[in-house]
Amino acid sequence: MDLVLNAADYYFFTPYIYPATWPEDSIFRQAVSLLIITNLGAYILYFLFATLSYYFVYDHSLMKHPQFLKNQVYREIMHSVQSMPWISLPTVSVFLLEVRGYSKLYDSIEEFPYGWFRFIASVLSFLFFTDMLIYWIHRGLHHRLVYKHLHKPHHIWKIPTPFASHAFHPLDGFLQGLPYHIYPFIFPLHKVVYLGLYVLVNIWTISIHDVSGCKNEKLFNGEFKKTE
């Protein structure tokens, strides 16, 4: 994330927003900047790709399903818009640790022996690591002690549209994204790969809510009935 922060400082924050006396490496300034960047980026990705998916991929016949809620698209959007700033707060704290140099993110492939092999292996291990942890986190969120408090709001949308992709309880949304942030503190990962995977993960989150409404209903209805 420091790549994005440095670009934002160079082209926008330093010349136009912050006073010259406020150093770029100030932890408070970095926190404020990351909060702005994270929220702005999240909204752009959400509205851009959810809108594209809704108009060009989503099966609109699903909206005739009896479990499709009244004004559901509007409600999904409002829920997402209200949740994302709260999700960003703990997310920014992780980004701040990365920017301050506490992660294992690196700039150059040549920093390690077998650099390109490590580069490719890190992508595969990232996908395995995050998918595995998300499975267990998601499974834990369906536990009867926490389900109704955290995860149940996301399953209000029995027939979801792409706009439901970020309609989470804030803590639920952060927990399901946490594996992506944990990985570079445990394993080395190239900064550009991390940034690219972070963007792709957000697009993937939207994509699994487009044509899969009926599948989601079949998949989660059983769990929903068990944990409700």
Rank of each mutant, 00 (worst) to 15 (best):
Y55A: 00
I186W: 06
E223T: 10
P162Q: 00
M78F: 06
F220V: 13
S33I: 15
P188S: 06
I109P: 13
V146M: 07
G173C: 01
V57T: 09
L3R: 15
F187L: 15
W157S: 09
H151N: 01
D172P: 14
A8W: 13
T227G: 12
Y194E: 04
F224P: 08
V211P: 09
S26K: 09
S207H: 09
H79G: 04
A42H: 10
Y55W: 05
Y114W: 09
Y18E: 09
F174T: 01
Q72R: 03
I134C: 08
W116D: 07
A42L: 05
Y198P: 12
I27E: 05
W204T: 13
L52A: 10
I109F: 12
F163M: 00
L97R: 05
K104G: 07
Y194D: 08
H143N: 12
L189V: 08
D9E: 15
M63I: 03
S108M: 08
V73Q: 01
R29H: 08
V92N: 04
L96C: 10
L52H: 01
L105C: 13
P113N: 10
V32L: 15
Y183E: 00
N6M: 11
K148F: 00
N221W: 05
Q67T: 05
V99G: 15
W204F: 11
Y58A: 05
K158A: 12
T130E: 02
V211H: 06
E110R: 15
D25C: 14
E223H: 15
W22T: 10
D172F: 06
I37Q: 07
F126E: 00
A7F: 14
Y46W: 00
L35F: 12
H190F: 04
Y102A: 11
L219I: 11
L3N: 12
F220R: 03
S83R: 02
N216Y: 03
W136N: 05
N39R: 03
V73G: 08
V57Q: 01
P160Y: 05
I156W: 04
K218L: 11
E217I: 10
